[in-house]
């Protein structure tokens, strides 16, 4: 079996190679990278010299697929990767499964698992494995460890016409800490009336030694926090020991990113907010009244334990 593995950015190629190596014995890579990274786990690598836009990638990947005639195409789910491979699959008229988190073989079938319904349910699809199929795997689900194959490199030199001109790239601001690594997370939602009020959440977070995350609108609509604080199906998933959702309604797409937390606390003024269904402990209160009291209570507790320990 032969698989073509694609990633626009080489650093995300490992996930795709992970799945590819479990379903095929010949792996052909297509990517672009400029650094000293040493490609491995591939038999052959088509390497672009410079960064290409999606439109150009589509023609190149399609052409390579026509030559290589792979059984499968695998990529790692990132917005650009999915766009490029979906266009290629459109031309090849083959299906693609997005955000695959598991794949197993069941005689002549694959059983493909992916989250759906905003991440609140799992979709298990049985499909004939002799068909030409494409998979966009979720990051960190199919890690591959050092298959020591060193690929033959084929440089992609051709100039391809592109119908889309890239005018500008603006890097997004980043938080210093990765929220996925935090043990405690305080999540803020639209219950906060303005950016300045978030200081209540930050004060609470500091006392708990927690990081601050948020719902999609707080980051994507209002820009109050960087995109890497945004929790949920279209961004980060976290598994902290404690998650405190404040002024968050509990939409399925948000829950999908936090449902694996150890303990969930919800603070919301609406007793019917769905978030309470997903919480271990719930507080029905106005956050503007409740947080100052909670902060004071925590400070008291910390002070008294300090006194007790004598420092």
């Amino acid at each position: 079996m032969k698989t073509v593995v694609f990633s626009n950015e080489y650093k995300y190629m490992k996930d795709a190679i992970g799945l590819a190596s479990s379903i095929s014995n010949e792996i052909i890579g297509i990517s672009y990278f400029e650094t000293k990274e040493k490609p491995e786990g591939l038999d052959k690598l088509y390497l672009a010299e410079k960064r290409l836009n999606n439109d150009s990638w589509v023609s190149i990947v399609y052409k390579i697929c026509e030559v290589e005639k792979p059984n499968y195409i695998v990529t790692t789910y990132y917005k650009d990767n999915a766009d490029i491979i979906a266009q290629v699959c459109g031309k090849l008229q083959i299906p693609m499964f997005t955000n695959v988190i598991n794949l197993r073989e069941d005689s002549n079938k694959f059983v493909v698992t992916r989250p759906i319904l905003g991440g609140r349910a799992l979709f298990n699809i049985k499909v004939d494995k002799t068909l030409c199929l494409a998979f966009a795997v979720q990051h960190n689900r199919f890690n591959f460890e050092g298959l020591s194959k060193v690929p033959k490199i084929i440089e992609i030199k051709e100039e391809v016409e592109t119908r889309i001109q890239l005018k500008q790239r603006k890097k997004k601001p980043k938080s210093k800490i990765k929220i996925e690594d935090a043990e405690m997370v305080v999540g803020v939602g639209r219950g906060f009336k303005n950016k300045d009020d978030l200081k209540l959440a930050f004060e609470l977070a500091e006392l708990l030694n927690a990081q601050v995350g948020c719902s999609r609108p707080v980051s994507a609509d209002y820009g109050w926090l960087p995109n890497d604080a945004w929790l949920g199906v279209s961004s980060k998933s976290i598994r902290p020991k404690l998650y405190i959702a404040i002024g968050i309604s509990g939409a399925p797409q948000h829950i999908a990113g936090i449902q694996e937390s150890g303990l969930i606390v919800a603070i919301n003024k609406d007793k019917n907010a769905p978030i309470f269904k997903y919480a271990d402990y719930g507080v029905v209160a106005d956050l503007y009244q409740f947080l100052p009291v909670l902060i004071k209570e925590l400070k008291n507790m910390i002070n008294s334990s300090r006194m007790y320990r004598g420092n």
Partner: peptide
């Protein structure tokens, strides 16, 4: 399609 369900305590103070 199967629901992902994680049991929670659902205590409201």
């Amino acid at each position: 399609i199967k629901q992902i369900s994680i049991k929670r305590k659902n205590v409201i103070f």
